[in-house]
């Protein structure tokens, strides 16, 4: 299987921030959601993937090209949009579309027209007068209309109202229909990640805490509600991530869940009243809180 992105042992250090030992692989045709709080290093990873900054160590390959040396060829295959990217205020979207069209041979004008309509944008309007949501959609249009093999989207849904968010997600989801196209996107909105990604990469303080396919990632976590006498052995169970006590009610959150775990808890004298799956938001907050405590 070909990979769209390969990062091996990538390091980057600057100004009190360090990205450490990043190993990441995105198979072609997959969607990966990069989750992490602000300052976790998400944007740095995107810049390294675009060849805009050179890592201190490790190897980077994007669409089969070594970076940053192969950045020109790689960038022909990549559609990149980030939160800190702006277009020329005094110029219209049409002017930007023509500029991009003159650079890439695979620009698809009918699809661009379709996106314009769906995003409710006017091609002749100057970029200066656009709202945040319109700007994000304009950037996305410029990327999507040339059918890039790899979409790198740094926080594409941040600050969007629900309607615009839906439109953006819908456009990204269209890419899912093609098995040769891949997407890496970051978000601190875990709902977006949960909805459309096949893989989840969890970044915290410059380190990848977990990279897994979404279904088994979600499957591996459980919230267990039980009753009984507290014993310190409960917290020592290796799968335990978070413990909350309220009177005799004990709420446990565990990773690497397996059916044997409930038996083990019962052995420790707990009566289990519920075992529930957790959503990504809950997993995200729980593991960050657990990491902070360590």
């Amino acid at each position: 299987m070909t990979t769209a992105i390969t990062l091996a042992g990538v390091r980057k250090e600057y100004g009190g921030f360090a990205l450490q030992d990043i190993d990441l692989e995105l198979p072609a045709g997959q969607v990966m959601g990069l989750v992490g709080v602000n300052g976790a290093g998400k944007s740095t990873i995107f810049r390294i993937l675009m060849g805009l900054i050179k890592p201190d160590g490790g190897q980077v390959e994007v669409c089969g090209y070594r970076m940053p040396q192969g950045q020109v060829a790689a960038k022909r295959e990549i559609g990149y949009a980030s939160d800190d990217m702006r277009l020329y205020k005094g110029k219209s979207l049409r002017w930007h579309m023509d500029l991009v069209r003159s650079v890439y041979l695979d620009w698809n004008e009918p699809y661009a027209a379709q996106l314009l309509k769906r995003f409710d944008l006017r091609a002749d309007q100057a970029m200066g007068g656009l709202s945040h949501g319109q700007r994000v959609k304009a950037l996305l249009l410029l990327s999507l209309a040339r059918h890039p093999k790899l979409l790198l989207l740094d926080e594409p849904t941040t600050g969007l109202d629900p309607v615009a968010r839906g439109e953006v997600l819908e456009a990204i989801a269209e890419v899912l229909g093609d098995e040769n196209r891949s997407v890496l996107f970051s978000s601190h909105n875990t709902r977006d990640v949960e909805q459309i990604s096949d893989y989840i990469a969890f970044l915290h303080r410059g380190r990848l805490v977990a990279v897994k396919d979404k279904e088994s990632f979600l499957e591996s976590w459980r919230r267990i509600l039980c009753q009984g006498e507290w014993r310190d052995e409960i917290a020592a169970v290796p799968e335990m991530v978070s413990v909350r006590r309220n009177g005799s009610v004990i709420e446990l959150k565990v990773r690497s869940f397996h059916p044997g775990l409930t038996a083990r808890l019962q052995q420790l004298g707990l009566a289990i009243s519920a075992v529930d799956r957790m959503d990504l938001e809950d997993i995200f907050v729980t593991s960050i809180a657990a990491g902070e405590r360590q």
């Binding site: 675009m50 805009l52 950045q71 020109v72 060829a73 960038k75 022909r76 990549i78 990149y80 949009a81 980030s82 800190d84 990217m85 702006r86 277009l87 020329y88 205020k89 991009v100 650079v103």
Partner: peptide, 14 residues
């Protein structure tokens, strides 16, 4: 200042 440089750098250029 206007952050149009990231847009330029996203094009296939060195």
């Amino acid at each position: 200042k206007e952050s149009t440089l990231p847009f330029v750098m996203s094009l296939p250029v060195t």
